[in-house]
Design a protein around this nucleic acid. Structure first.
Length: 306
DNA sequence: CTTCGATCCTGGTAGC
DNA sequence: TGCTACCAGGATCGAA
């Protein structure tokens, strides 16, 4: 369940290992992984071939690799279980390998290869690596899109800036909340309002803010909105500081190492465990076909709650 | 127009 | 043991 910090960790890995390399060949092993590329798998592979990858960018949970000297980019979304791995060529295929991209050139010099060291007596060129998209549940995928003049893939123009973006507009976000007839957790997960927040960090930020997930947004005061945004940024920065998070064992960062931190979360997944502030057992409630975790004492439900 | 719920997918696990 | 049911959940789409 990669959210913004995990995706940013992947982006950094791609910048390190894939930027400025030229695509030799792409191979689609599962058509569903390119379903957002409407022209199909063959078109996807043909159009990648021979292009040089630029510096990866990210907005919210989306990341993309610009193709240099073209107005196009490879857009990636990891969905729930997607991984982008940089693996030595010849490493065994992962069980859920969906897309493979080989390059004509090596990684930048002076770079130790990711992954396990080559077996003794069978040396592998240190930078003979390829990019792999691995995804058990195939909610994620890759696709090629035209970019807008500011470099954004056109299909994600509706995705809002994320809270770590210097151009994120706190005041505009607050006014949007006030206009909504919605509740705060729904709003936090609405990628057209604020991007990059998923179920885990939403629960964490709400716990820190002592806000119940069903609280209506219309009555939010500016200080309350700003405090919440502060906590959203804090939980994301904390996760970034330890190299991304989530405890779903499916998630592995771009170098093939586990990106999950051991730090216990304060809310998510803590049903029945004591609240870190007041000791009250935390609760889990079914919510939008998933779960919300909260402290029933610190995070009181609104009066008019379903 | 906004809001909201169903749906996609697969592997792990709980329960019988 | 072997089966079923359920759970994880981001984004999209269509219904209300």
């Amino acid at each position: 369940m990669p959210e913004l910090p995990e995706v940013e960790v992947v982006r950094r890995g791609l910048e390190r290992w894939v930027a400025h390399r030229t695509v030799a060949e792409a191979e689609v092993l599962h058509p569903r992984a390119v379903r957002r590329h409407v022209a199909g798998a063959d078109d996807f592979t043909h159009r990648l071939k021979g292009h040089r990858v630029g510096v990866p960018s990210r907005r919210g949970k989306y990341l993309w690799l610009p193709l240099e000297d073209t107005p196009q980019a490879i857009l990636a979304h990891l969905g729930m279980s997607g991984q982008l791995l940089v693996q030595p060529q010849g490493a065994p295929d992962e069980k859920h390998l969906r897309i493979r991209v080989r390059f004509t050139d090596a990684s930048p010099p002076a770079s130790p290869a990711p992954g396990p060291a080559p077996a003794e007596g069978a040396p592998v060129a240190a930078d003979a690596t390829e990019l792999r998209f691995v995804d058990q549940r195939t909610f994620g995928g890759l696709s090629l899109h035209d970019t807008t003049p500011d470099g954004l893939p056109d299909v994600i123009a509706h995705i809002a800036r994320d809270p770590l973006d210097p151009l994120f507009d706190d005041e505009a976000f607050h006014q949007a909340l006030r206009r909504k007839r919605s509740t705060i957790k729904r709003a936090l997960l609405d990628q057209s309002l604020i991007s990059g927040v998923g179920n885990i960090y939403a629960d964490e930020a709400l716990w820190r803010s002592r806000l119940h997930y069903d609280r209506p947004t219309a009555g939010f005061t500016r200080p309350r909105t700003l405090e919440l945004l502060g906590h959203v940024r804090d939980v994301m920065n904390a996760a970034l500081a330890v190299g991304g998070t989530s405890f779903d064992s499916l998630y592995v960062n771009v170098n093939g190492e586990s990106g999950y931190f051991d730090r216990s979360l304060d809310a998510y997944g803590r049903e029945g465990l004591p609240c870190g502030r007041c000791g009250t057992p935390m609760r889990r409630r079914p919510w939008m076909n998933r779960s919300s975790y909260f402290c029933p004492k610190c995070q009181r439900p609104p009066r008019v709650s379903s």
